[in-house]
C-alpha cells in the first residue's frame, strides 16, 4: 500500500493538526486510515496516500457549502441507500448509457446495490484504458453483482485480474493485501470507496445516494 506520513500530508494539503483531528472526530476520516508505525522518533502515523488525499480534497471543496455533520452523513458508508433503480443511473455521467442498457437486459432486475452502481461507474471510466467494450464490461459487472451486494463499509478496492483468457474481479476491504500466482496479472486497481465519495458528493440531492 502506498502510504503518506502525517507530516507530509499536512505539508501537501496545507491543513492543520486541528483540522485533521476535528475531521477524525466528526468521522469524516475513518479511524482505520490512521496507521501507526514505529519510527526512530518513537511512533509515526501514516495514511493510505490516494484515499486520504482524495478525501481531504473532497472535504476542502465542500466544507464551505455543508456543515461537518452534513458532510459526515454524505461520506459515511453506512448512510447510503441500499439500492438504486437502473433508470436513475442515466443521471450519472460517469456511466456509459449503452452499458446501462446492456446491464438492464442482462440482469433482469430493476435495481442495483449502491456498491454495484459505484463499480459500474468505476469500470465504465476505466473501459477505454482497459480496452473493454460495453459488452465485456456488462459481463464483468453481472458476474460481480453477487459479491458487490455483500460489500459495505469503507476502504473497498477492486482488482481486475487477467487469468489469460478472461478478466475477473477481486474485492478487498481494509488493508488486506492479496497476492496471486505468476499466471495472474493484476491489470487495474480501483478504489471503490474513493469513487463512491466523489459520486455521492457530485450527485447529492439528485439521486438517492
Amino acid at each position: 500500500m502506498n502510504l503518506i506520513s502525517k507530516k507530509d500530508l499536512l505539508a501537501i494539503t496545507g491543513i492543520s493538526y486541528g483540522q485533521l483531528y476535528r475531521w477524525k472526530r466528526e468521522r469524516l476520516i475513518p479511524e482505520e486510515w490512521f496507521i501507526k508505525q514505529s519510527a526512530y522518533t518513537g511512533q509515526e502515523t501514516f495514511f493510505p496516500r490516494e484515499q486520504i488525499l482524495s478525501r481531504i480534497q473532497s472535504i476542502l471543496d465542500m466544507k464551505d457549502k455543508y456543515s461537518l455533520e452534513e458532510l459526515a452523513r454524505m461520506l459515511s458508508p453506512q448512510n447510503t441507500a441500499t439500492s438504486i433503480k437502473w433508470d436513475d443511473l442515466y443521471e450519472i455521467e460517469e456511466i456509459d448509457t449503452e452499458l446501462i442498457n446492456e446491464l438492464k437486459n442482462l440482469t433482469g432486475s430493476e435495481e442495483c446495490s449502491f456498491m454495484g452502481v459505484i463499480f459500474i461507474a468505476a469500470i465504465s471510466m476505466s473501459a477505454g484504458k482497459l480496452g473493454l467494450n460495453n459488452n465485456r464490461c456488462a459481463d464483468i459487472v453481472s458476474r460481480s453483482i453477487p459479491a458487490l451486494r455483500k460489500l459495505k463499509g469503507d476502504n473497498i478496492v477492486c482488482s481486475i485480474i487477467d487469468t489469460g483468457n478472461e478478466y475477473h474481479t477481486v474485492f478487498t476491504q481494509g488493508s488486506a493485501q492479496v497476492l496471486f500466482d505468476e499466471d495472474v496479472e493484476v491489470i487495474e486497481q480501483l478504489s471503490l470507496s474513493e469513487i463512491a465519495d466523489r459520486i455521492k458528493l457530485k450527485y447529492k440531492g439528485r439521486l438517492a445516494l
Binding site: 507530516k7 492543520s16 493538526y17 486541528g18 483531528y21 522518533t41 518513537g42 511512533q43
Partner: peptide, 20 residues
C-alpha cells in the same frame, strides 16, 4: 504524544510533541 495546532505546556513529561 501531544499533537495539536497550538500547544502550551508546563510541568509535562512527553515522548513526542508535534505542533505548529
Amino acid at each position: 504524544v501531544i499533537e495539536a495546532t497550538s500547544i502550551e505546556l508546563s510541568g509535562v513529561t512527553a515522548d513526542t510533541v508535534n505542533g505548529k
